[in-house]
Amino acid sequence: MKKFLILINGLCLLVLTLISQLDSFKASQNTGIQKIVGFADSYKIWIITAAAIYIFFYTLWPRWLKPHKQKKELIQELLTRINGELFSGNDNEHRITLFEEITWVRAFLRNYWYFIYHLGIRGKRLLYLRWPKYGRYLIINSRCGRRFKKSSTMFRVEMDKEEQCEGIVGYIWHTGLSVHIPNLPDISDIDFSTCRSERNLSQNQRTKVRKYMREGNIPEFRLLRKIHRRSRHFYGTVIDKNEKTWGVLLVDSTANADPFSEEVRKRFNSFALTIGQIIQMEV
């Protein structure tokens, strides 16, 4: 498809060049050429307009629609590289995510987009019925992990109000530091799609879930239900852009043992610096 679009672009450029030289072809004795020249002469305004519009959109449209496409591709490569170098490419247990901050308006629109998306899924659609509380939110920019590369989950953040920051990613964003949180309770055995509130859990499960929510900085059961993968170990750091916090680079793991040794953290930090520099680049 891409090659076809390039070909059309080339043809448009060729047509524009030929039409600009139309007068020199008029002298030709060849009847075939004269027919083509006559046709081009009668419709030249339409041909020029069509070719110019195509070239204009072909050149500018992708940059308007996805201005940071190349940057994003580069970051995605880097996340894969981090996983390969630090976690032996095990993207099932270890997931690396770059979160970026968005405004409330975008969060609002996003929420209702996912409401429509989840309409057919029982037990899920109601999670998106209530509109998001006013504030800024963190969403996934890029992710390296086997599942949930695109997720509907958003975490609310507020610079001056720690209690309004949701999740570990929100906590990292609030502190502006690098944060290591290991050994959260294992709640992977609980099926959250069937329980709408904590009351549906057994006593043992409830204790574990409450501990998970407390240590994982999750204020509402609804948010815990929205999270697709409830990891046990986290390490993340802030990414700055233009004198303010832009987002968070987070790695989470479902492994039994905490994988974030001092060496891993150091090397992860080095990658985080590179990602920060890419984010800061004006492309």
Binding site: Y171, T175, L177, S178, V179, E215, V238, D240, A272
Partner: peptide, 19 residues
């Protein structure tokens, strides 16, 4: 960080960010 500044209920280690 020497002082444990994080939330009391969270088992947490805080570090200065790489930048």
């Amino acid at each position: 960080l020497k002082k444990q500044e994080g939330k009391a209920e969270m088992n947490i280690e805080l570090y200065i960010p790489p930048s």
